[in-house]
Write a protein that binds this DNA or RNA. Sequence first.
DNA 1: GTCTATACTTCGATAGAC
DNA 2: GTCTATCGAAGTATAGAC
Lengths: 208, 208
Amino acid sequence: MPRELRTAISELALADRILPVAAAMFRRLGYARTSTRELANRLGIQTGSLYHYIRGKEDLLFQICSSALTHIEEAVRKATAGVPVERKLEVAIKRHLISALTDSDSHATMLMELRALSAERKAAVIRQRDQYEELIRTIIEESQAAGVVRADIEAKYLTLSLLNMLNWSIFWFDPDGPLTENELATVMTTVFLDGASAKRRGPASRLE
Amino acid sequence: MPRELRTAISELALADRILPVAAAMFRRLGYARTSTRELANRLGIQTGSLYHYIRGKEDLLFQICSSALTHIEEAVRKATAGVPVERKLEVAIKRHLISALTDSDSHATMLMELRALSAERKAAVIRQRDQYEELIRTIIEESQAAGVVRADIEAKYLTLSLLNMLNWSIFWFDPDGPLTENELATVMTTVFLDGASAKRRGPASRLE
DNA sequence: GTCTATACTTCGATAGAC
DNA sequence: GTCTATCGAAGTATAGAC
């Protein structure tokens, strides 16, 4: 989470601080090792008071996972609506990365702590995740049909390879580092679409 | 872990079953939620007996993380030694994927549960991980110097993008699914080197 | 080398006063 | 809406018999 957002949390009402603070702790320590005592402590209240806002610790995890997926799906869907097929995938990649890196505590938690949910809630989050994957896969299939993306690899594996590359970057991207989110998005768009090979490069590089 | 290996574990001596069984549980439940009681149960012994073999639960996590990295580094180093620079990166990608997918419980644990280690042991594993990353980055830098890999993106980011793509596949690759480890390695080599774009494809596709 | 028994800690959640 | 106090469950690890 960027610094401006981080400090802003301390000015929110208690009820609105719970989820982001929990997400930051889940990301850092993991769900299982994050105690409600320590969470309450960071919120400046006692453990008992926390249960005025939530029914159980698992509620927090579920809401974090679910809203992370809701937000990224909505962001990518809106950003790509009406975009011509030649540029749709690029736009989706950039929007995905921006969304995941901006809301990185929630996304990291969703990616790493999903298994801590109860069976039913885990299934619900996995359905959401599959639905988002389908959005990306559909964009790739449209791109293949339009001749923009290679068709000799199944859309399923192109989608998974792409999401691998994008999602894992949450765990090493440094918002205060040398690359902005936009620049990383450009790098990954270039790698995914044009490849790392030096051969057969066209004249219009994405990097210039 | 492939089925042949899975069944073979039950025929090992107790001392040799502890780490693989622990790795499978850590992967499935996470380190924090894996109890020594249940681990002992799966090994067919009592909790107390486990402490004849280990000094503490954390020992298991450390050994799993450390040996996963030792093995993959050795495998990639050996496989790429003496290979001409034009093919070195391809060989490294394939060997990395085969190693990670074969030893997937350990690798998944290393990737997801590292933060559960004590500060000193975590630092030691991170050093090992950085060293392995450096091996891959060096191969990419050599490839750039030889004109095989594009030089307009820093080797650092090419390395991270590649490792993102390769590592995360542990979490969805199905050894009993339609693709073999080798086929997935071919797909990812192609995506990473040639890109997903349909434009400017050369005549010698890796997929034929 | 494996067992039983248990000491000690920490946790999630609740009860009930204010 | 926040507090204090505490219950009951579960965990890691150890002690000591066999």
